[in-house]
């Protein structure tokens, strides 16, 4: 018998008995597969001993103590400052020597830090809302149709989130989201809303939102004509 595939060996390691005699016979004879199963079995045993509970985070004052002991410039946001507790550890020569060495390299590190930090990503940038709009039905639109728009910014990226409550699009049609500059009547197509009336779209980079300050939702047909058809919902963005 050729070597059984790894998925079958995995099942053996998990304790599911080999149902095929040929598999048992192979394992009896093949040291390579046996050692594979043993290694996997040990991994499974470890994880079973570890249990499914996630590891507990150290209490907040541990970080405060680290920051205090290292005299870090400031606590990054999100870490509550508590009174630092001196360590009970009897610090030996090693730490002293490390500190001296670290002081020596600190100057070098500071000098080269600028060259390297460009590649280092900090925590993901926070998302914040920069504008919003309430949409309501235009005169010719479906009565009672409404929508909400939120423009959020994460780092350099701006996204527009649209959520509309209105009748489903007519057959052979869909709803499209636009940004409108009322001063020039220019329109930019942002994207098609999902069947549920929701959609999240990336804003074209560099788009000046002070001009394109009106959100428009139009009913479109699958007619191949890219131009704006008939408005359904509209609302002005305010920050």
């Amino acid at each position: 018998m050729p070597h059984p595939d790894r998925e079958r060996l995995t099942l053996v390691a998990l304790g599911e008995q080999p149902v095929v005699d040929a598999l048992s016979a192979h394992l009896d004879q093949c040291a390579q597969c046996r050692s594979e199963v043993t290694a996997m079995r040990d991994t499974v045993a470890l994880a079973r001993e570890a249990g499914p509970a996630p590891l507990e985070a150290p209490p907040d004052h541990v970080w405060s103590s680290i920051a205090a002991e290292l005299a870090l410039e400031a606590d990054p946001p999100g870490s509550p400052v508590r009174p630092a507790r001196p360590s009970r550890r009897r610090r030996g020569l090693v730490v002293g020597a490390l500190a001296a060495a670290a002081a020596l390299v600190a100057a070098v590190a500071i000098a080269v830090a600028g060259a390297f930090t460009g590649g280092f990503t900090e925590d993901p940038p926070a998302t914040r809302q920069i504008a919003s709009a309430s949409l309501s039905a235009v005169a010719a639109g479906p009565p009672g149709a409404t929508g909400q728009v939120s423009v959020v910014e994460t780092g350099d990226e701006r996204r527009i989130e649209v959520s509309a409550t209105m009748p489903p699009p007519p057959e052979q049609g869909y709803y499209e989201v636009w940004l409108l500059d009322e001063r020039t009547d220019s329109m930019i197509a942002i994207g098609a809303l999902g069947e549920n009336g929701h959609g999240t779209f990336t804003m074209p980079a560099g788009l000046d939102m002070t001009g394109y300050s009106v959100v428009d939702v139009s009913a479109e047909r699958y007619d191949g004509d890219p131009a704006h058809a008939s408005s359904v919902l509209r609302g002005a963005l305010t920050s």
């Binding site: 970080w63 290292l70 870090l72 410039e73 990054p76 870490s79 600190a106 590190a109 500071i110 080269v112 830090a113 390297f116 930090t117 590649g119 280092f120 990503t121 900090e122 925590d123």
Partner: peptide
């Protein structure tokens, strides 16, 4: 990247 920041003394990388 985190390790690079750590070695070069970026305190944010320590955190």
């Amino acid at each position: 990247r985190l390790a690079e920041g750590f070695v070069t003394g970026d305190e944010a990388a320590l955190r």
